[in-house]
């Protein structure tokens, strides 16, 4: 059992849980994730390690309520426990001195770029952050990202915070401004990562994306997370989750993410508000 020490609401449907997991807290590196199971009947889902306190033995998990498990997680409070957490998993981000690095986070992806931004900054890079969300209420970790980046741009679809538009608009402007960008690192919804990849491919800028396909064991055993990268089939859980954005076969990734949509709907309906299982 892994005890929740604090719970913080970051936005309407986005929470942060700081969870006691000393072994993971002591050795997780930027870009890595855990696979967790909320309770004895739960499924296994991957979540990025969004932060860690090695001395206190805790890791931060930041997630948006999208499905059955993230909703169940959001209902837990400080003092409750998560049944199982395995990690840290995946190949860590390769942190090196490059020069100018642009990190891009879409939606809850902002949480996932934070540790990566910090690490690139610590390695002597000039880090520019771009985070986007639908509206002002969904912008998370603004202060933390400001501290981690040399410059931070915020975009919202409706213009309620930062500038109106998409992260890709800002990226295009930065590229047009002739900045020598050594690396773009992007995490967010697949359509966003794909647009970013198309822009940087044209500009010839190396780009890394962190993918979040369906996972089960998270240790390379089942292959449900397989993604086509160039002409190779890779397992995101062990070969990734980070890949060269210009090589990812996006259509296949989008299709595979929808592989269990029917079943996910049934699962969510079972646990919808008003359903008997919640009254227990």
């Amino acid at each position: 059992m892994y005890k929740i020490i604090t719970k913080t609401r970051l936005a309407a449907s986005i929470n942060r849980l700081d969870v006691q997991a000393p072994e993971i807290a002591g050795r997780a590196r930027p870009g890595q994730f855990v696979v967790l199971r909320v309770n004895d009947t739960g499924e296994r889902i991957p979540l990025t390690v969004a932060g860690q306190d090695p001395a206190g033995g805790t890791i931060s998990l930041i997630f948006q309520e999208t499905g059955k498990t993230t909703r169940a997680l959001a209902q837990l409070s400080a003092g409750d426990s998560i049944r199982d957490i395995l990690g840290p998993l995946g190949t860590p981000t390769k942190i090196e001195h490059i020069g100018n690095v642009v990190v891009i986070g879409g939606g809850v992806g902002a949480a996932e770029v934070l540790p990566v931004a910090k690490a690139f900054k610590a390695a002597g890079n000039t880090v520019t952050g771009i985070v986007g969300a639908r509206s002002r209420e969904l912008i998370i970790l603004e202060n933390e990202l400001k501290a981690a980046c040399d410059k931070l741009y915020i975009t919202t679809d409706d213009g309620s915070s930062g500038r109106k538009g998409f992260v890709s608009d800002v990226l295009k402007e930065i590229i047009a401004g002739n900045a020598a960008i050594g690396l773009v690192y992007a995490v967010g919804p697949v359509p966003m990562m794909r647009v970013v990849a198309n822009i940087t491919r044209e500009a010839g800028i190396k780009t890394t994306v962190s993918l979040n396909p369906i996972m089960l064991d998270g240790t390379g055993m089942c292959g449900v997370c397989r993604v086509r990268v160039g002409d190779m089939v890779k397992f995101a859980c062990v070969d990734g989750p980070e890949f060269d954005a210009h090589q990812v076969q996006w259509d296949e990734l989008i299709s595979r993410l929808a592989g269990f949509r029917q079943e996910e709907k049934i699962s969510v309906e079972q646990h919808a508000p008003g359903c008997t299982c919640k009254k227990e």
Partner: peptide
């Protein structure tokens, strides 16, 4: 759906 993990 008593257990969360689906299989088709």
């Amino acid at each position: 759906p008593r257990y969360d993990t689906p299989v088709y």
